[in-house]
Design a protein around this nucleic acid. Structure first.
Lengths: 245, 245
DNA sequence: ACACTCAACGTACGCTGTACACAACCGAGG
DNA sequence: CCTCGGTTGTGTACAGCGTACGTTGAGTGT
């Protein structure tokens, strides 16, 4: 097809054609995408052009041969992240330690990859490594004599806790980051921007006290992204599960 | 999404728009946006042009006088959804029923607004109605003699469970919806598309059994979006909290 | 020497949020 | 009555996104 729009400048003015520099592959692409999402602080930094640039590709279209679409790339990223999970081959006999261990492994993974929790629910729960984890959780409950339905019901609670808390942690991180961009303003004003007028509303004395404590740098609870906060929740959940087995 | 140039003042700090409007107003815009997200099955259906069209405005730019940006609109939607929460004015004396009630109210709200859980973590937890809920939860723990830090630690667990499960439910809904678009295909193929080859991998007998049971329409656990699944989790959590008070 | 294959590229398009300038309307002052 | 400044809605335009499609050129087999 002739290019109608561009009036064809003389060839002498055009740059020499670049030599092929790289050889692309799925693993390189996924690795680069994960690095971008890790460093860029979330999924909003991830776009095809950025991945291509990072790989030295001059256009994003080179990636499409390998990952088919951005959704496909995200699927691969999710699976690659889950491949980092520490999943035993079979139950140890201590169901509680087994479940706690898998959950903790998931939690640490979401800390390394803050984008994971926000993306995992945007796609079907597919992929070999998700299946690997699921198989282990099912086998733990099987050893307890529980059927698959029960295992799924409890398993969903563990996922919920890990991913839910991971998203709270990511959100908190983003809040402080956004703060850094305009630190010059009154911290009181900053609190107001987070909590609205309720921050100093006499009708809401406890929230007012909370924000005051935050401003003063006093203890306002565990950081949402801390292991302690995670372990508090997982142990509460396991208590409840134990009571229902 | 956000305006990069301007430091993006939060919507709560902006003056309320004049009330002299004839057709457009914040409430109309937010209502329309929520309806679109409710019906369209998620945040991906929400865009400024769709909202403007629904309101009879010929251009999306009309909205910007009232909501400042799409982020602002989302903030308003999140707060409007939380205004539907059933939050008592003060603790009843039964802390467990109080927390369970608020959580259940949140859960039902996320069922009415499937987009909520996916959007709530994309923004700072601001807004008068979020503050209203937080104040109540803090007051419940205050009556138990617990300090604010403890209350926050436990409160985060409740949020995590509600939102985490809500996202699993939304994801499941989306999976079946995507399915409806091409029902003609072999259901076995469909399972494979969700779970990969693991669905029939002899190395993963339990996942294979699970998918087989799903295909046969047998019991594979509570639907993630069911009240029963939610209550299982909240009761487990409350057990754990009770043991730690 | 040739054709064939296929990895990488460049162009272009539709959809998004939204900046900016303009138009249509308003109540108030001559 | 007619202007007038301010508010409210509109039209145009653009940058950034995912990605469809056709082109290019290096490698390979014959």
């Amino acid at each position: 097809m002739a290019r109608e729009n561009t009036p064809a400048p003389p060839i002498w003015l055009l740059p020499a054609p670049p030599t092929r520099t790289r050889t692309l592959g799925r693993t390189e692409i996924v690795t680069a995408a994960m690095a971008i999402a890790d460093e860029g602080g979330g999924a909003q930094a991830l776009n095809m052009r950025a991945v291509a640039t990072r790989l030295g590709s001059s256009t994003p279209m080179s990636l499409y041969r390998y990952v088919h679409s951005k959704d496909g790339l995200v699927d691969l990223m999710l699976d690659a992240a889950q491949s980092e999970l520490d999943v035993p081959g079979s139950p140890s006999g201590d169901w509680r330690a087994d479940l706690r261990g898998v959950a903790l492994s998931m939690w640490r993974m979401t800390s390394r990859h803050p984008w994971f929790a926000g993306l995992v629910h945007s796609r079907p729960p597919a992929g070999p490594n998700a299946v690997r984890k699921l198989e282990f959780v099912l086998s733990v409950f099987e050893e307890l004599g529980k059927d698959v339905a029960t295992a799924m019901n409890f398993g969903r609670l563990l996922d919920s806790h890990v991913y839910g808390l991971a998203m709270q942690a990511a959100e908190e991180r983003k809040m402080w980051q956004a703060n850094d961009f305009h630190v010059e303003q009154d911290p009181r004003e900053l609190m107001r921007s987070w909590f609205g007028d309720g921050a100093a509303d006499p009708e809401r004395p406890r929230v007012a006290a909370l924000t005051a404590a935050m401003l003063a740098g006093k203890d306002t609870g565990l950081p949402p992204g801390s292991d302690a906060q995670f372990e508090l929740g997982i142990d509460c959940l396991l208590d409840g599960i134990a009571a229902r087995l």
